[in-house]
Simulated scan of single mutants.
Amino acid sequence: MTGSSAGENGERRTWHRLTPSEQGALESAGHLKVWRPGQILALQGSAPTSMFVILRGWVKISATNYRGEDAPLAARGPAEIIGELAPISGLPRTATMSAIDEVHTLIVPRTKFLGVLRARPRIAEEIFRTAAIRLQQSDRLRLESGGPDFPQRLAAVLLELVLQHALDWTDGKQVDLRFNQGELADFARVSRSTLIRGLDELRRLGVVRTARQRITIIHPRALRELAAGRPPPDIKA
């Protein structure tokens, strides 16, 4: 199997919390597939025919509301299990999953997936644990995006996205966020021009570096302090 090691991608990611025997049960039930950048893994509203284990690359999760507005919800990386709740509920998918870069996945069809869960209930426990963590993260992101002070709000939104991207994140570790500026503006609930001004300020402070489809947090401790509304110790107020 072509996934990265647990040490590289975090012990807390769902796939790494499964035992080798549990991983083997899912591998035996599924098949591998490689997706090109931009390719759709599954569409919002489609039938829940399978679940996915990301072995390599990053996947964007997005949804369209009743007004037809498309908004990003999250990005998931190696050793994450995605699209797993719809096959359990049997309801149409609530979000679209698309490849950000080249993505390698294990795909497990719904009927086989449900059979594995019945035979190995601890896998179901880990999946529901992940769902609870993601719900808490989503609630925090909505809470932080509503703050009145934009620089602080942007720092808080970036911090919550960091915690989604890197489950084992520590303050001293740089993190790449795989979103473009338009998507970050949607997360922060601001116009793109307002977001650009906020990013300019964070760049000036040496907190972030920006590139196409990527925001790098280069001063994580400073980001945490800014998110809390405090000037970081090494940045002049």
Rank of each mutant, 00 (worst) to 15 (best):
R93N: 12
F150D: 09
L114W: 10
A132F: 06
I61E: 06
P78R: 05
E69A: 09
P148F: 15
A119L: 05
D139K: 15
P121D: 01
D149R: 10
R122M: 15
E144F: 06
E80Y: 06
G115H: 03
R122Q: 12
E69S: 09
F150H: 05
G45R: 13
P109F: 13
T64I: 12
E126P: 12
I127H: 00
L114M: 13
A119C: 00
A47S: 13
K33H: 06
G45P: 09
L55N: 05
Q152F: 04
G90A: 07
D101S: 07
V53K: 01
A132L: 14
E80G: 01
K60S: 11
I82W: 07
L154F: 04
S145G: 02
P87I: 04
I61S: 06
T49N: 01
Q136T: 12
E84F: 13
T111I: 09
G68A: 09
G83K: 09
S138R: 11
A86R: 03
G146H: 03
A75Q: 01
A79E: 00
R129M: 13
V53D: 01
F128V: 13
P109I: 05
Q152Y: 11
A131P: 08
F52T: 08
E144I: 11
V103C: 00
I82Q: 08
A86C: 08
S62H: 05
I127E: 00
F128L: 15
V103E: 06
S98V: 05
G77Y: 05
L41D: 04
E84P: 00
P87N: 09
P151M: 02
D149M: 07
V157F: 02
F113T: 08
V108I: 08
M97F: 07
S62L: 00
